[in-house]
């Protein structure tokens, strides 16, 4: 079997901010609500607590993000998704929940640099000055759905894999030198 290939195979662009497509990244959509074992199950996979509304709990290369009142995004190393799903299945056995691998359904970008927020200000109706550390926004990048959060001196942007080229185009257009806000 070949190595997994991310949507843009690690494309990058250097403008007034740096754009990098990263990944593949392990991602699990976990849907559950009011399940007692949920905190423990998530902790077993990400080592974090369950994210509160609009928050993402980050633990190194793992994270738990709140997506909706009954949906979480779990981030783990790509190679550990199968084990993570098994771990969830064990912890949530007998409960009503849904956990699926969506690692390959997504594309992930890093937007980095002092003015990284300026790139995203052009694409998403997000008040970046009010964005708190650890706050996860489910929003849009121009015409497509996107999720984003601040992390490690930049931002992580997640979109659907099929529109990775479109989002790269948006980020490149927005990061052109001389167009700082």
């Amino acid at each position: 079997m070949s190595d997994p290939v991310s949507a843009l195979n690690g494309a990058s662009f250097n403008g007034f901010a740096t754009i990098r497509e990263i990944g593949p990244l392990g991602m699990i959509t976990l849907r559950a609500k009011g399940v007692k074992a949920l905190d423990k199950a998530v902790k077993s996979v990400t080592g974090t607590k369950l994210a509160a509304p609009r928050r993402i709990e980050i633990n190194g290369d793992r994270a738990c993000g709140w997506m909706s009142p009954d949906e979480y995004l779990l981030v783990v190393p790509y190679a550990e998704v199968t084990a993570a799903l098994a771990s969830l299945a064990k912890a949530l056995a007998g409960e009503h929940y849904l956990a699926v691998d969506v690692s390959d359904a997504r594309a992930i970008f890093r937007v980095e640099g002092d003015k990284a927020a300026d790139v995203l200000r052009k694409l998403a109706p997000v008040d970046f000055e009010a964005l708190e550390p650890g706050e996860l926004r489910r929003t849009r990048a121009a015409q497509v759905a996107a999720a984003m959060w601040a992390e490690g001196g930049g931002f992580t942007v997640v979109c659907f894999r099929s529109v990775a080229g479109y989002v790269m185009g948006l980020l490149t257009h927005s990061a052109q030198r001389g167009s700082e806000l």
């Binding site: 052009k122 015409q143 099929s162 948006l170 257009h173």
Partner: peptide, 16 residues
Amino acid sequence: AGESRGEIFQPLRRTP
């Protein structure tokens, strides 16, 4: 129209 021109006029979905 803003950025919506040319290649990024609208999202173009591509399969792998």
